[in-house]
């Protein structure tokens, strides 16, 4: 290799790996030795973002903890597709208790480990958006407020997918679900509802809150690693497109996650002790239509007639995110190892 450092590495840090960069800068996902915490043979739909996100997160957490990890899982697709008797796809110590109690069960595991003096073992809890922002919110808030030593990961696919795509508190406006059908004067999910869990988490003042998507594995892994380096309650909210629930082509999962970020619809950020400390800059800003039109759940915004005023409202929400978090300002952090020399 040359003596002068060449910082430009073809696919930089955008792809999972890169034969040209220092191995220490490659992702866990690029490595032969990744743990495949969620292994093949699971029954997730083709192109499932949740299956992908879970492997990304857990493999990174396994790496960060040196394999000393236990996982608690809420009910939902992730649990159902991974553990139908007699087969499990997990290759980590894993517990499923209930839909709404994963944070509390994880607190219990953490307490057990503390009482046994096995503090080298780290606890990670995970669930879908329904399990997290709705039914599990009480338990999650309790876990946050007590600052229990748990990393909680929400795989947000923006609806109750496992039960057949019903609306959750994380379902975005205008999206069609089985309980927000595209009928009546305001088809799809209504505007002005829903909750922003990352901000709720931040309001607890916990040491670490971050958002990420399955489209940027470097960023996601960095966040898992950062989170694993901290003790106390930590929250990671990962956007995981669902081909089934979003009525999108199975090969668009990663692309949709990318567009969610690049439109400003899903801000990717990091917060410490309740304050936003970093945001991921939008790299190539795109209008929200680009994102919406790929998804059948928004089909009614384009057919039979384009509903431009609704699209404009969604654009306005994206613009508000961009303004609030400075997603296109110079302060936004560049992706690592991706810039020109």
């Amino acid at each position: 290799m040359p003596t002068a450092p060449v910082k430009f590495y073809q696919v930089g840090s955008f792809a999972a790996g890169n034969r040209l960069i220092d191995p220490s800068l490659r992702t866990v996902q690029s490595e032969l030795t990744r743990s495949n915490s969620l292994t093949s043979g699971h029954r997730a739909c083709q192109g499932c973002g949740e299956a992908l996100g879970a492997r990304y997160v857990l493999d990174a957490a396994m790496r960060a903890s040196g394999g000393r990890l236990v996982v608690v899982n809420a009910t939902g697709c992730l649990e159902v597709f991974s553990t139908p008797y007699p087969e499990t796809s997990w290759q980590v110590a894993w517990l499923h208790s209930l839909f709404g109690n994963a944070p509390a069960a994880a607190s219990g595991v953490a307490a057990a480990l503390r009482s046994q003096g096995r503090t080298d073992i780290r606890v990670l809890a995970q669930g879908g958006d329904g399990g997290t922002v709705d039914i599990g919110l009480g338990a999650l808030s309790g876990m946050f407020e007590r600052n229990d030593d748990v990393l909680y990961v929400c795989y947000d696919n923006e609806a109750y997918m496992n039960t057949g795509v019903q609306r959750s508190g994380a379902t975005p406006p205008a999206a069609r679900t089985a309980t927000t059908e595209t009928v009546g004067p305001e088809p799809g999910n209504v505007f002005g509802q829903g909750k922003n869990l990352p901000r709720i988490a931040m309001a607890h003042g916990i040491p670490y809150v971050a958002t990420a998507t399955v489209s940027e594995v470097h960023d996601l892994e960095n966040k898992v690693e950062t989170a694993m380096g901290i003790h106390g309650a930590r929250y990671l909210h990962v956007l995981v497109p669902c081909p089934l629930g979003w009525a999108a082509p199975t090969n668009q999962t990663v692309h949709l996650a990318r567009l969610a970020k690049e439109t400003g619809i899903f801000p990717v950020l990091e917060a410490r002790d309740g304050e936003v400390t970093a945001v991921s800059a939008i790299r190539h800003q795109v209008p929200v239509e680009e994102y919406l039109k790929l998804q059948g759940r928004y089909r009614h915004l384009f057919r039979p007639e384009p509903r431009t005023e609704v699209i404009a409202r969604i654009q306005a929400a994206a613009d508000a995110n961009i303004a609030r978090y400075g997603l296109v300002s110079d302060d936004a952090t560049e992706p690592p190892a991706g810039g020109a020399p």
């Binding site: 517990l95 208790s97 509390a104 607190s107 307490a111 057990a112 009482s115 009480g138």
Partner: peptide, 23 residues
């Protein structure tokens, strides 16, 4: 470890986690 929780649902859930954790 004594854990103050936000509900009985959590109390039993913590107990479940703790017991599954071997305590």
């Amino acid at each position: 470890q004594f854990i103050n929780v936000e509900s009985e649902f959590a109390a039993m859930s913590v107990s479940i986690g703790a017991s599954a954790g071997g305590s």
